[in-house]
Amino acid sequence: MNGKSHHGQPAHAYLPAIGFRRVSRFYKPEKAALFDVSFDVLPGEFVYISGSSGAGKSTALRLMYGAEGPDTGAVLFGGHDLRNLHPTAVALLRRRLGVVFQDYRLVPELTAAQNIALPLEVDGVRHAEISVRVEEMLEAVGLPGIGKELASSLSGGEQQRVAIARALVRHPEILLADEPTGNLDVYNANFVLDLLEEKAAAGTTVVLATHDRMLMAARPHRVMAFERGRLLGANHSQAEAIAAPCVPRAG
């Protein structure tokens, strides 16, 4: 094997939480949203995916949670190549992660509590337990007592916190967040980031896509920088990230 996997990447002793192997994604034939991207995200890591608009951050995230597949290459999720999985198996893998979006993706006709309860309902958790866990999550995100309010009646900051509560309510192994603070004021942005770092400290793998350099500077973690669909550096550990010249480590 001469130290290389069959994807042409270094063979590692660890099993990455998420791995990209020479992944390309084309929305137009002549323009790659992602091109020949390879990287690993280790279990428990907090990683930034940075880059300007159109750099490929959101595409990378969509590939991570299996919303779409790569045109070439492989996306590994907990060691599973998503290409080889039946849609039902992909759905079951998604239960191991939480996703937070810039636009929240709440169901406006449902209450805050009903939105947070959706993943637990999918898991088949009993209603009595759901009520308790939803209430706990609402307290954790600083919104106790708003469970019965419609999602559409909440402010942007509140909606984002409810979206995070929904992503965290089943205690996921991996949390993917696409510009989660993009629409928030400083107070709400810090609250959300504190929460994500707290979860990372507790062992949750966090992948946060952002173009906000100030944020990355204020809260230093490994950074994977994208530009025009290409990864400027692939790092397999925090130490390598710091050492990599083309990938600035914030802070």
Binding site: P87, R95, L118, P119
Partner: peptide, 16 residues
């Protein structure tokens, strides 16, 4: 449609 999209995101199977 939104609810269906969210359900799929949180791991609901097509049957569900």
């Amino acid at each position: 449609a939104k609810e269906i999209e969210v359900l799929r995101l949180v791991g609901a199977t097509e049957r569900y």
